[in-house]
Deep mutational scan, measured.
Amino acid sequence: MTEYKLVVVGAGGVGKSALTIQLIQNHFVDEYDPTIEDSYRKQVVIDGETCLLDILDTAGQEEYSAMRDQYMRTGEGFLCVFAINNTKSFEDIHHYREQIKRVKDSEDVPMVLVGNKCDLPSRTVDTKQAQDLARSYGIPFIETSAKTRQGVDDAFYTLVREIRKHKEKMSKDGKKKKKKSKTKCVIM
């Protein structure tokens, strides 16, 4: 069974824990209790493949930012979460993405942009803004509501699919490099 290491990042209060708990335990946590770091595991079937999701729910508070490099190193894919009623959390996505790329030393890291709290009427981040940002990053965008469960499975499952595509691409690139290195030079 394939294991996928997913990391949920975003500013404090955007609903990272609520999304994760909704996926794992099928219930909505409405009281806000700032996370330092929590880890969850769940076995699911995605596109006919049974897999184990190892999900790291991270601290959004700035005082825990020193811990970010460590979990970013171990993560295979990242859910970059903002709240649709919090423009600052949307603007912060850029910083999370840049930090992930720096730590992973790669421009090509599996990510999904997630606009959470889409059940709320007080939207300050337009869907088109988020779609445009995701398009500019070359990553999928999904709106979710941890409260109603809308888009929750889709967000995590899409990230797994992005990781699969990335692994497939990397193995193809690896095979191309191996083929090239088999060419021999004969000096007579």
Rank of each mutant, 00 (worst) to 15 (best):
E3Y: 05
E3I: 06
K5M: 00
K5T: 02
V8G: 00
G10A: 02
K16E: 03
S17D: 01
S17Q: 00
A18C: 08
L19T: 11
I21F: 13
I21L: 14
L23Q: 13
L23K: 13
L23Y: 10
L23R: 13
D30A: 09
D30V: 07
D30I: 08
E31T: 05
D33K: 07
I36S: 12
E37R: 09
D38Y: 07
D38P: 00
D38N: 11
K42E: 07
V44Y: 05
V45Y: 08
V45P: 07
I46Q: 01
I46V: 11
I46S: 06
D47F: 01
T50Y: 03
T50H: 08
L53G: 04
T58L: 08
A59P: 12
E63K: 07
Y64D: 15
A66D: 12
M67H: 13
R68Y: 06
D69L: 01
R73F: 03
G75K: 02
E76Y: 11
G77N: 00
G77F: 08
L79P: 02
L79M: 07
A83T: 04
I84N: 15
N86L: 01
N86K: 02
T87C: 12
E91P: 04
E91D: 13
D92N: 08
D92R: 02
I93H: 02
H95S: 04
Y96G: 01
R97Y: 15
R97S: 10
Q99L: 14
I100W: 06
K101A: 05
R102P: 01
R102L: 05
R102M: 07
K104C: 07
D105H: 07
D105L: 03
S106I: 10
L113M: 06
G115M: 12
L120R: 03
S122W: 06
T124C: 11
T127E: 13
Q129D: 05
A130N: 04
A130P: 04
L133F: 14
R135E: 12
R135P: 04
R135F: 06
S136K: 14
Y137F: 15
G138Q: 13
I139T: 04
I142K: 07
I142P: 00
E143C: 06
T144M: 14
T144F: 02
S145M: 03
A146I: 02
A146M: 05
K147M: 14
V152F: 11
D153L: 14
D153F: 13
A155M: 05
A155E: 01
F156W: 07
F156K: 00
L159A: 06
H166W: 08
K167L: 02
E168K: 13
E168Q: 13
K169A: 11
K169L: 11
K175F: 05
K178N: 14
K179Q: 13
K180L: 15
S181T: 06
K182L: 05
K182F: 02
T183E: 15
K184C: 02
I187K: 15
I187N: 15
